[in-house]
Structures are given as structure tokens and as C-alpha cells.
């Protein structure tokens, strides 16, 4: 249990997927103008990542890894070159599925998230978490925790940034620095602040 909490803290704060690995910057920059939409997108990303990371773990373990097809009597088959296309297909399918399920069971949430759901398929944080868990060789339980907490870390960063950008409306920024420039500088400061968490070990 301690091990999982440690992993959770690490992926939310210490190795924040946005502020330390630069993943999901595009939607982070585009959707962080209003707190409400940022919160909606953040929740949707947490949800999708919690599902896709373990599914991609299963695909990797039982389909794509060298020798993974031993259960089907084909121990010499290596499908690892299919990893990317299998992962992105799973992500696109899960996003579509989530969209349909939310539409069926909670129309209110669907209308709140509606436009952002399809965008998640091309969010690099989702694919990035799947690829990182392969690289680190996590097991199933770890991949669930890792996927969910990376999503929470991303949501935390985008919500905080949207709140800061809301306040920024009252300040006089040089014209050429408005928008992307000042947002990058603020992200840099935020990333520096998150570095203070490094070295935290729960033991």
C-alpha cells in the first residue's frame, strides 16, 4: 500500500506529467483561459487516463511485447512495432466509448464536457503515460495508480494555470508577450515551484 501511495505522490507532484515531462502542452495552453472549462477538461482527462493506461498495459503484456503471444502458442512472435498504433487506437476508442457512455447516462456532464472529449484523443499526456509505463515496466496495479495520478497532476496544473491566467487579465503585459509568451514564463515558474516536492519519500 505504501508503495502505491509513494507512486501516487510521485506522479502527481514530483514528476508532474505536464511540468516535468512537458506532455499535454497544446491543450494546456489552449484550454486554460477559463477555470470552469479547465476543470471540466481536467476531470475528463483523469477519467480517460485511468482507463487507457491499464488497457494499454494489457495490450502490451498480452499482445505486443516480444514473446507476449506465448499464451496463444506463438512464443517467437514479436509485435512490438505495433505498439504505437495499438495504443493510439485504444485511446481513440476509449475516448469515443466514454463519450457515448456519458451521453447515455449523464447528459448534464456530457453537455459540460461535450466539445473537449474528442480533443483528449490527441492529448499527448494520455499517450505519453501509456508509453512511459511500458518504459518503466510497471505492473497492472501500478499502471492504474500511475495513469490516474498522472491525470490528476495534469488536471491540477491546468486548473491552477487557468486561475492564474484569470488574474492576469488585470495586469498590463507587453503586447508581444501576451498569450503564449507570458503563459510559458508562468509555467516555468510553476514548474520551479513543483520542483520543491522532489525528494519527498513516504516511508
Amino acid at each position: 500500500m505504501e508503495h502505491y501511495i509513494n507512486l501516487a505522490v510521485k506522479s502527481i507532484f514530483v514528476e508532474n506529467i505536464l511540468l516535468a515531462y512537458f506532455l499535454g502542452m497544446c491543450s494546456f495552453l489552449a484550454i486554460s483561459k477559463r477555470v470552469q472549462t479547465a476543470t471540466g477538461l481536467g476531470c475528463a482527462v483523469v477519467f480517460v487516463m485511468t482507463l487507457t493506461t491499464p488497457i494499454d498495459w494489457a495490450i502490451q503484456t498480452y499482445l505486443c511485447r516480444p514473446g507476449a503471444l506465448a499464451w496463444a502458442g506463438l512464443p517467437n512472435v514479436d509485435l512490438s512495432f505495433l505498439t504505437f498504433i495499438a495504443f493510439i487506437a485504444v485511446i481513440a476508442a476509449v475516448v469515443q466509448l466514454v463519450e457515448m457512455i456519458i451521453d447515455r447516462f449523464s447528459p448534464a456532464l456530457y453537455s459540460a464536457l461535450g466539445i473537449f472529449l474528442p480533443l483528449i484523443a490527441v492529448n499527448c499526456a494520455v499517450l505519453g503515460a501509456s508509453l512511459l509505463q511500458v518504459e518503466r515496466g510497471l505492473n497492472l496495479g501500478e499502471s492504474v495508480v500511475f495513469g490516474m495520478c498522472s491525470g490528476i497532476g495534469w488536471a491540477l496544473a491546468i486548473i491552477a494555470m487557468s486561475a492564474i491566467r484569470y488574474k492576469m487579465r488585470y495586469s498590463n503585459v507587453p503586447p508581444a508577450l501576451r498569450g503564449l509568451g507570458i503563459t510559458m514564463l508562468m509555467t516555468g515558474l510553476m514548474s520551479m515551484a513543483f520542483m520543491c516536492f522532489s525528494g519527498i519519500q513516504l516511508k
Binding site: Y21, F22, A176, L177, G181, I182, M184, G188, S191
Partner: peptide, 21 residues
């Protein structure tokens, strides 16, 4: 700092500023 993440963010911010100016 330049090798770590914040350096990259700040450098890109400054580069965008210079390019847009």
C-alpha cells in the same frame, strides 16, 4: 536550471517574446 524543465519553459517564453516583438 537550463537542463531542467523550468529553464525550457522560460527560454521558450523569452523566444516567443523576441519572435513576436
Amino acid at each position: 536550471l537550463m537542463v531542467l524543465a523550468p529553464g525550457a519553459f522560460i527560454l521558450l517564453g523569452l523566444l516567443v517574446w523576441a519572435q513576436r516583438a
